[in-house]
């Protein structure tokens, strides 16, 4: 079992995966990275949720954030969006503070974070994606409605525009949230568990849209649970467990070694059954892999 505190000092087998090692590959020197997180530390009730995390997301990648429950995945996304004030560290979006680049970022929160019994319909929810560019007081008009309809079309939900949101299935809710993000016309998409509780068809449809976004030069970051589909869906990955274990191209850093470090000795536990502390983590990650 490797203690987390050892990782940053000892380094890891793959050179790309070591902390503070610059990400290789797609990054070009003349354009700043899409997202640059440095020395990010966040606490919740005195407990560190993120501990000195450095992550650089080059523009134009499709990146997964993986890690066990409580690893700080959602917190990392929220820090990127300035929704949580970290105790240390900073985030740059395209080389500038988030406040300067709000319009470049679209956010898809966890589906369960809102009340789906709220009295409104699908089109109205998607229009909310335009509220940022409208600013205070100005009301959405015909332009916003057209943009919202166009986004619904892209996710295959145009027929549901006037549907009450409480009547949607889980997969449909997720598509509506994705449409709302598309309506923002952003360059960077931050998604918290976009595949959570959706059926296989919806999952394929969503990943197809994310690939289209990448093809047009957008950057997508998604919290992801299904380790098996990481290499298939994503080209970049960050392995997180309070500390950053590794971050880089999937083929370089998505290794058994790094996964073992991330999931707290899962492999060892499976082999010889000791390490009571980690039985929990092992059980969690196994469930995650089994989940659709």
């Amino acid at each position: 079992m490797v203690k987390r505190s050892d990782m940053s000092d000892t380094g890891l087998p793959t050179p790309d995966s070591g902390p503070r090692t610059p990400d290789s590959g797609l990054r070009t020197s003349d354009s700043p990275p899409a997202i640059d997180v440095a020395d990010m530390t966040a606490v919740y009730h005195e407990q560190p949720v993120l501990w000195d995390v450095d992550v650089t997301v080059p523009a134009g990648v499709l990146m997964a954030i993986v890690g066990p429950n409580g690893a700080g995945k959602t917190t990392l996304i929220k820090c990127m969006l300035g929704l949580i004030h970290p105790v240390a560290g900073r985030v740059l979006i395209q080389g500038q503070p988030y406040k300067e680049r709000r319009s470049a970022v679209a956010y898809v929160p966890q589906r369960g974070s809102v009340d789906w019994d709220f009295p409104t319909n699908v089109l109205d929810v998607v229009e909310m994606g335009r509220y940022g560019s409208l600013g205070w007081i100005r009301r959405p008009g015909r332009k916003e409605r057209e943009k919202a309809l166009e986004s619904l079309e892209k996710v295959g939900m145009a027929a549901f525009a006037n549907r009450q949101i409480s009547q949607l299935s889980g997969g449909q809710q997720q598509r509506v949230f994705l449409a709302r993000a598309l309506a923002q016309d952003a360059e960077i998409y931050l998604m918290d568990e976009p595949f959570q509780g959706v059926d296989a068809t919806t999952e394929r449809a969503i990943i197809e849209i994310l690939r289209e976004l990448r093809a047009t030069g957008k950057t997508v970051v998604a919290v992801h649970h299904d380790l098996q589909t990481v290499p298939e869906y994503f080209d970049w990955v960050t392995l997180l467990n309070v500390r950053k274990i590794a971050s880089g191209p999937v083929e370089d850093v998505f290794t058994e070694e790094n996964l073992r470090l991330t999931y707290g000795g899962l492999v060892a536990v499976l082999r010889n059954g000791n390490g009571a502390d980690h039985n929990h983590a092992a059980a969690h990650s196994l469930q995650m892999e089994a989940a659709p």
Partner: peptide, 17 residues
């Protein structure tokens, strides 16, 4: 619009400023 968004999805409202 602000009341509606802050009530339905405070996280999005905050991220949009």
């Amino acid at each position: 619009k602000e009341l509606k968004l802050a009530t339905f999805d405070a996280g999005l409202a905050a991220s949009l400023g």
